[in-house]
């Protein structure tokens, strides 16, 4: 198929960006979206132009590096996939595809389609861990049985890949789904209880300081999340936060 691409080009973080049109031809429907971008870039390199910079790495939907806002949707029109898993069969010959970076004040653009997500790092550093040193004599892994349901729910929350689609999809650029998922994973496990109070308070504080907005329950994040992280996690974080605030 032949396509027109409208792509955000921006030289660096301080430069002013703009949408630029490109044509690509003979795109196979079996290609992934990023393979189509590879074709475009090979074309640009051969023409002596600078290729479009975009983040990507594992190309199997797990590293969370890829991050494109395609036709107004994070990770494009398909559900439950990252951009690297999106396939061109979702598009038609002659389509015009708009490709932008994540849009959020807390994710400034570095270049073209690449954004800076280190605000997520700082939130995790504020409390996204259990304080246990490596020792070699931690208690046996089966010493504390954990109900399967709780373990499974913790796992569901823990599958977050930290891509930032939730933030990009939210009209408030809220990171509540991301933070809620991490808080939930630990809240559901006995190992997470000891530091539960401090964790939720510190992570939420950092989230606010980074300039992410508040949640107004529109649910766009859940719809666009490539890993199906549920809104339940936001509710659980709110409960945890309330409990912690009272304990203070």
């Amino acid at each position: 198929m032949n396509l027109t691409l409208k792509i955000w080009r921006q030289k660096d973080s301080s430069a002013k960006g703009q949408m630029v049109d490109y044509k690509v031809t003979d795109i196979s429907e079996h290609m992934s979206f990023l393979e189509m971008m590879d074709v475009l870039n090979e074309q640009l390199v051969n023409a002596g132009e600078e290729p479009v910079a975009f983040d990507h790495d594992c190309r199997e939907g797990i590293c969370g590096m890829c991050s494109l806002y395609i036709n107004g949707e994070a990770h494009g029109p398909d559900r439950g996939v990252t951009t690297c898993q999106l396939h061109m069969r979702m598009f038609k010959d002659g389509d015009t595809i708009t490709i932008e970076p994540w849009r959020a004040a807390a994710f400034p653009v570095i270049k073209d389609l690449i954004v800076d997500r280190t605000s997520f790092e700082r939130i995790q550093q504020a409390g996204g861990f259990i304080s246990v040193n490596t020792s070699g004599n931690t208690q046996d892994a089966n010493a504390i049985p954990i109900a399967k349901e709780a373990a499974d729910k913790a796992m569901d929350a823990a599958t977050c890949i930290g891509c930032g689609a939730c933030v990009a999809s939210c009209k408030n650029s809220s990171a509540m789904l991301f933070v809620g998922a991490k808080v939930s994973q630990y809240a559901l496990l006995p190992q997470g209880q000891v530091e539960a109070t401090e964790r939720v308070l510190n992570m939420v504080k950092q989230m606010d300081e980074e300039g992410f907005g508040n949640c107004t329950n529109t649910g766009a994040c859940e719809v666009e999340c490539p890993k199906g992280i549920s809104l339940e996690n936001i509710a659980r974080m709110n409960r945890e936060y309330l409990k912690a605030a009272f304990k203070g």
Binding site: P145, Q185, G192
Partner: peptide
């Protein structure tokens, strides 16, 4: 020899390994 310690360490960190209905790994 150290393999068993790895599982203990990861569970202590909150790694949500699959469990059976009795709650064991």
């Amino acid at each position: 020899e150290v393999s068993a310690n790895i599982i203990d360490q990861c569970v202590a960190q909150g790694v949500p390994f699959a469990r059976d209905y009795g709650g064991l790994l």
